[in-house]
Design a protein around this nucleic acid. Sequence first.
DNA 1: TTTGAATGACTGACCATTAGTCATTCAAAA
DNA 2: TTTTGAATGACTAATGGTCAGTCATTCAAA
Lengths: 198, 198
Amino acid sequence: MAIIVDKEQKKRDIALACKDLFFQNSVKDLSISTIAATAGVGKGTIYNYFNNKEEILFEIVNVLLRDHDIVKREKLSRESTTKGKIKVFSDFFYNEEDLELRELYKDFVAISLSSPSKEIKDFQTNHATYYHSWMKGIVQEGIEKNEITPESINLVQTICAANEGLFIASVSTNRIENLEREINLHIDAMFNFMERKK
Amino acid sequence: MAIIVDKEQKKRDIALACKDLFFQNSVKDLSISTIAATAGVGKGTIYNYFNNKEEILFEIVNVLLRDHDIVKREKLSRESTTKGKIKVFSDFFYNEEDLELRELYKDFVAISLSSPSKEIKDFQTNHATYYHSWMKGIVQEGIEKNEITPESINLVQTICAANEGLFIASVSTNRIENLEREINLHIDAMFNFMERKK
DNA sequence: TTTGAATGACTGACCATTAGTCATTCAAAA
DNA sequence: TTTTGAATGACTAATGGTCAGTCATTCAAA
């Protein structure tokens, strides 16, 4: 009949083609024309695959998060203690290699705060739930290995939230000079309470 | 020679005139024309007092925060325990009476995440520092009254960050069904560690 | 007391740019 | 040759921001 393209693949191709554009500019400062030109397609084509700029950002984040998770799993497997794992788990917010992904993540949170559409919220919920239960698994494991107390499981939510809160503060204010230090301090403080006293 | 207006006052007047507009719409969805019409001035006049829409939001938040603080001080004085005070301090994120201010606050954080201009960051830093040291004062007082351990002072940062993080999560995801409960749970958990054992 | 020059406040028409649409074109398959 | 999905970019409507001109008030000089 006519050309049939793999819609999902093309969507990914377009998104990844302007990855760097999104790294260097905030979504707000990018025009659809620029994005289309960078991806090497017409403006109309963009609208064949995405409803708006934000969805392109989501697609990029989605793809990058998959790679990020693989690396994270790798790094986690090299840690033996629960505390070490939690620290590695939290290093997304400050480490050098996730700098670009973090740039996108900022935009991402900004969008979900100002335009709470259903899709965006579901998207965020999925990711948040995924990482939350991942961390919960790590803590659970620590409990089973008798490293930390059973009540520690109730602090998972707080650790996650504090990480997020510290990150937001480090971006939106000048109050946090050293995020890595700040996050590790708070994890240390939490583990003081969570660790089994011998 | 000519008319001299109180610039600061007029700025406040314009901002407050479209307060409700900002409550009901996100900054993104408001046009300068609409804002100008609502405030009853010409579009050009807006630019005599503000550089962009965001600055109008800041002005509104500034004024409202002043009132909010008075009420908060009032409420705090009625609490006798440190734990009670911290809970009252944190209720901004979920209580009914601050609903509108919270709407603005969301926009506010979104802007500081996506357009980190110097002014915005300074503005945020001032407020964050102000509230942070306020809470620190409350904790300090609790330590002096021998209610909580001296080490508690190190958890102020974590409590603040976790509140913020939980709030962000409640807005941007569907994971937190009851923010009030979640925040109070985490404060209770923290106080379990902070309180002096008798 | 009158007057007109000086000045600051205010304005909305105007311009450049943008998001989003859609009629048209293109190319492959039948 | 015909059919049909994909791609396109000219077009429209709306927006943010500018700026040349208008207006109102004041006050010094006549």
